[in-house]
Design a protein around this nucleic acid. Structure first.
Lengths: 233, 233
DNA sequence: TTCCATTTTTAGCTTCCACTAATAATATTT
DNA sequence: AAATATTATTAGTGGAAGCTAAAAATGGAA
């Protein structure tokens, strides 16, 4: 019985690995060593070592040279960390005046120190929110997430009215840029132009002053929207 | 230039050492190895090792076989940690429903993860409180503490009216016991009995229902009071 | 199929920070 | 002053988690 099997005593590192692996797995099916290393900004051999320990303690399964998948236990742990992170982000913005571009780093550190009790108290104080300030769904206490079906802005057709529902929380410079464009969660706009060959998307806000903005294709891919219906021709 | 000289990058361990050394030093003039070890619940040789590293990086001065004193830099750091801890305690009790007996452990972990910015936002949200939930003074941003002059309950004379102003935050069982006696901060009582030879102190609350309680000498030593004036004979 | 690029792993080090066992220095008592 | 008790330090170890350099496995291209 390894040292990992303490009650809540998973190290900061391990929590970070599990959370990261969960995210990569959700995106790509399995998490490869290099992808994990890059996401955590550490060297690949360090990942190999940790993966071995984590699989020995039953948190994930590892097919050498293939990749890694969380076990039930691993996934549940990852969800707990993710819940902590997202509730913290929500609390910090809602109650302590943080902006969506500054909240990630703070939550990143706090998620390893905050007890489940604290996080549940925060959730309570917030009225059990379903989404964090970037639109990411907050897992429930029993580890369920239900992400609404969103469409990347890059795939919204010309003439459609869409609402911004989700952005990535990772890059704070990008988040500041989005805010400067008026792209906050819940904002509604019409797609008025789309250049071919992965070209930029032009949008026009439906609310006055109906500003028009141009968004690069890559960025547009990362913006999750729902369609609000077509404009009346 | 050692690894310690990073911006805010003092490890959790180091922050704990500095805070603990500050507290012992405040109580006893200098912090001895064994006292530090006991306070941190680690073995004395571990302290010897860390003390060497800390003194090499200028955070404290060490006279072998004598003890340890913080330098200016070390003291300032300790005060920052202490400020973080106490504001966190205050915030958690004031805003998130924690009790004075459960708040210490949570703050103990968060104090190493919370940024100064977060702590200042909390302080702001609280109206810049001067005391934590146990009556300990919160250091200012520039590292000043002014502790009011308190008298241990064990030294309050019979017939004097006193107000409870400070308790230790370390032992949560004890804090629950105090609460069960009605001994909260700000409560006012008269000392109606004092047994000699370090015997118990009997108090009677001035507020209805004027309950009488008996407090052991050791406990009475740890309760900080201010005298509110004598009873009118 | 053979070769090359990519991806992963092994081997071997380093730092941090704890531990135990043994030793040394200081303080106290006789 | 000698003997004892207390206190602190050295010496050596261990685990967690990172690193680099070198080797190995895999998969795609020639």
């Amino acid at each position: 019985m390894s040292a990992l099997s303490r009650q809540r005593g998973l190290s900061r590192s391990i929590e970070d690995y599990l959370k990261t692996i969960y995210e990569i797995e959700a995106r790509e099916g399995a998490a490869q060593t290099n992808a994990i290393a890059e996401a955590l900004a550490i060297a690949p051999p360090s990942v190999s070592g940790m993966v071995k320990r984590l699989s020995e303690s039953g948190l994930l399964e590892h097919v050498p040279y293939r990749g890694v998948q969380l076990t039930q236990v691993g996934r549940r742990t990852a969800m707990r960390v993710l819940r902590r992170h997202r509730i913290l982000e929500k609390y910090l913005t809602a109650k302590l005046g943080y902006d969506w571009d500054s909240v990630h780093d703070e939550a990143e550190r706090l998620e390893h120190a905050a007890s489940d009790e604290l996080v549940e108290r925060m959730a309570m104080a917030l009225g059990n929110p379903e989404f964090d300030p970037h639109g990411a769904p907050i897992p429930t206490r029993d580890g369920m997430v239900t992400a609404p079906d969103l469409i990347p802005l890059s795939e919204v057709e010309i003439g459609e009215i869409a609402e911004l529902r989700r952005v990535s929380d990772k890059d704070s410079e990008l988040l500041r840029y989005l805010r400067s464009l008026g792209l906050r969660l819940g904002v509604v706009f019409e797609v008025v132009g789309r250049q071919p060959f992965r070209g930029p998307v032009t949008i026009q806000f439906t609310a006055p002053p109906h500003a028009e903005e141009v968004v690069g294709f890559e960025l547009a891919q990362s913006l999750g929207c729902i369609i609000r219906g077509d404009e009346v021709g």
